[in-house]
């Protein structure tokens, strides 16, 4: 247990990534407010970024940009940063699309609560079928 704790302290960025991830999943799955779901998604995304960026880091390393440097400089791994640039763009796109869907739903139902929307929709379909029958 103690060694586990020590290792966790050493690997604290990963630990925080895990915590963020758990918070994100909880938010997405348990909140019925559409905005909160969206926030949960973004929190989960951040967990991913932290995981990657932490993996690429070297203690005492500098950012991977060539200055008029002395040959002994230790650069951090540039690959995760590059990947996460892509990841951030993906996340932005998803957020934009989700927001547009929320706007669409809000215009239609006047609420951003998933449960209320489901209830209203069920009422609509019920009245539909009663009209028909």
């Amino acid at each position: 247990m103690k060694t586990l704790l020590e290792k966790l302290i050493v690997n604290y960025p990963y630990f925080f990534a895990m915590v963020l991830f758990s918070i994100g999943v909880m938010t997405v799955l348990t909140r019925s407010n559409l905005f909160k779901k969206l926030l949960g998604i973004n929190i989960m995304g951040s967990a991913g970024y932290i995981l990657f960026i932490a993996a690429g880091n070297i203690r005492g390393g500098t950012d991977p940009i060539l200055h008029q440097s002395d040959p002994g400089t230790v650069y951090v791994n540039p690959l995760p940063s590059a990947l996460m640039l892509t990841g951030i763009v993906v996340s932005v796109s998803v957020t934009a699309f989700a927001l547009s869907l929320i706007i669409r739903l809000y215009k239609e139902y006047g609420t951003t609560d998933a449960r209320r929307i489901a209830r209203m929709r069920n009422e609509v379909t019920k009245s539909d079928s009663s009209d028909r029958g």
């Binding site: 060694t3 586990l4 290792k7 966790l8 050493v10 690997n11 604290y12 960025p13 990963y14 630990f15 895990m18 915590v19 991830f21 758990s22 999943v25 932490a54 993996a55 690429g56 880091n57 070297i58 203690r59 390393g61 230790v74 791994n77 995760p80």
Partner: peptide, 23 residues
């Protein structure tokens, strides 16, 4: 999941070391 995640994190190569497999 988080518990298994913690076990996994403990196993990950130590953070910020230059001889990690990533480098």
């Amino acid at each position: 999941t988080a518990w298994v995640g913690l076990l996994a994190i403990a196993e990950l190569p130590p953070y910020g070391m230059p001889d990690n497999p990533v480098h």
